[in-house]
Design a protein around this nucleic acid. Structure first.
Lengths: 354, 354
DNA sequence: TATTATTTTGGAATCGATTCCAAAACAGAA
DNA sequence: TTCTGTTTTGGAATCGATTCCAAAATAATA
């Protein structure tokens, strides 16, 4: 027993009365080892609690069974951690591990981090941001297989996986339409970001699909999230024809919306239905009534990134045909709680009479 | 240029007209290299963009410049990610990297993970939980330097760093006392956890320090967080002598407290002051008025854990004197917003008249 | 049974750094 | 100039796995 970590393949070979090559073959489940020998070697390895040393293997094979997970700013948004979890779970399942680096939004550090990962011979890099956006990466990134999560590069020269914001916006709007709503307000943010633009686009597409003319009055772009939601309500609900439902670009905006609606004496969802976006548990699950919202596919993005690197990414040694790198959009599932449930009876009634 | 990663120390030696030993000495800033030679070697290395291979170094030196960061359940609580960030930043500063593993609360997987980290010759392990609690770890953990973050083992046989819950509870209560409050309610959770017990203990100690008799009526242990806070308000505010301030065991409870107080027509902080715990940004910063609360030292715990491993932990090879492993408690700083600010004028007046 | 094909085996060479030792170069003292 | 002590240097051995080749053992075929 004791420090079984000084036992080498040589020791195993000696104790088992075989050559090192045979032990190696057993270790890697290679063919051409007689069952008896294999069993014998396994027995000895178990006996002395042998564990092969990763560094030696990496040195010889040039493969490390490791992936780098680099983030620009890890902690800012809680739910973004799901990306790490998705990546970690997927990696572990395939006997890979994740080397984690957080660059604190520092380009120089980012470059150093990538270089350091190269030294460690990681077999791929995942670069993840904490909100959907365009990213800039140093050229060194092209020296190993890389994939982007929740972001993309302008030239689309790197594979990328992001949430399908348009689909999300569409789904949210459609949900409200299905509930019978015909005047649906959209409270957006004034910043131009993929999330904001995509969700609005989805909103418009859904209206179009239902033959409802787009009314610009029902869309407001506010500054801030919670504050913006709050202000948006005052704007939209004082319209001559106020909306009966509000789609908020994110859950924090919905939080402000709840406050303002309460001040106005309007009940959710009886007077106004509300749908958010992001499914930030702490907000969505704790608002009263519970906020119906859309889930960002963080876990799935992390898992996809790893699986892409491990199975689909062209290795640098054999580049394969020069296909453009995939730009994947993952759907945002709806999380039903209580805030959208307006006019349900009417809908049911109408459906039955069809 | 090109794939500079096939260049070895031999190549450098040849091109620089020196021996491999000399190159190695330059690489490691070892003494006994003439300045001229050193410069020459540096020049060649820069010229061909040489980078030493980590695996070879690890194999020879048995040191990997890597630490394992193992969590039981990474994503559940957003703010716990700060622990990772703290650890990562501290590690990077010392040219160490973090290998991340998430065991999904699976003991078997945890053991496998530790074994895998041993194979990779990490120089230490940080095991972090996402809330302050007791942890159970497999015996294998003793085979390398380990430290616990946000948790501890029953026998205290491993070094550990956790938030100082008592100090936090004390600080929160004292803040309210300073504001002039004399009847301070404490809304706790019914579960027995270090956080809950410690905060209540701090609450009691602060009262004692101010010579205020402890009134059991003012403490309520509710089920759930937000719901508990909500229920707690109805209980405490209907007392014959209701409290003028409420200390909530966490921010989510405070969220429920806000709801209930609003229903009762009580203004925060004019009628009732509120203090939370945890500083969950999404809640605390977005409640109206902003919630005064206590920050959990997650970042600091992560950083402390890494620095302990790197500088203070007894190496397994030279165990040193058998001192009991440190059990560190880090203070929880107050985050002032608006919800605590009651009676300030009176306090000022009284202070001046002292 | 002799011959050929196939499977199994042992062990030397290899991956790319560090480390150690002996030799060389240099400096200082007599 | 010679001798001694110190600094600098080159290079072989090493870390612990994999890989490849030739040899041995076994199986298949005639």
């Amino acid at each position: 027993m004791g420090s079984s970590h000084d036992i080498t393949i040589q020791d195993i070979a000696r104790r088992a009365g075989v050559g090192v090559g045979t032990v190696s073959r057993v270790l890697n489940d290679s063919p051409n080892v007689s069952p008896a020998t294999r069993a014998q070697v396994h027995r000895v390895m178990a006996e002395v609690n042998y564990r092969p040393k990763a560094a030696a293997k990496t040195l010889r094979t040039r493969r490390s069974s490791a992936l780098a997970f680099i983030t620009d700013e890890i902690a800012s948004t809680p739910y973004a951690v799901d990306t790490i979890r998705g990546a970690q779970d997927a990696a572990w399942q395939q006997n890979f591990i994740l080397l984690l680096v957080n660059t604190n939004n520092n380009q120089q550090l980012l470059e150093a981090a990538i270089a350091s990962m190269l030294d460690r011979q990681v077999e791929g890099v995942i670069f993840a941001t904490w909100y959907h956006r365009m990213a800039k990466l140093p050229a060194i990134i092209h020296r190993l297989p890389a994939v982007l999560a929740d972001c993309f590069v302008e030239e689309r020269s790197l594979p990328s996986v992001v949430p399908d914001e348009v689909q999300g916006g569409y789904a949210a709007t459609e949900l409200l339409l299905r509930q019978g709503h015909r005047r649906i307000g959209f409270i957006n943010n004034e910043q131009s970001q993929p999330a904001h633009e995509g969700r609005e686009q989805g909103y418009r597409q859904a209206l179009a699909a239902w033959d409802i003319p787009f009314d610009p009055e029902l869309v407001t772009c506010q500054f801030g999230a919670a504050e913006g939601g709050y202000a948006g309500v005052y704007l939209l609900m004082r319209l001559p024809h106020p909306p009966t439902a509000l789609f908020c670009f994110n859950d924090r905006a919905a939080m402000g919306v709840y406050d303002a609606l309460r001040e106005l004496g309007l009940a959710i969802p009886q007077d106004v239905a509300v749908v958010g976006f992001d499914n930030q548990e702490i907000i969505a699950a704790h608002l009263r009534p519970g906020l119906t919202t859309l889930q960002l596919p963080h876990y799935a993005m992390g898992a996809w990134a790893v699986n892409y690197l491990l199975h689909e990414a062209p290795s640098l040694s054999s580049p394969g045909p020069a296909v453009p790198p995939p730009q994947i959009k993952l759907t945002c599932p709806i999380v039903l709680r209580a805030s959208h449930a307006w006019l349900r009876e009417e809908v049911v009634a109408r459906t039955e009479s069809d």
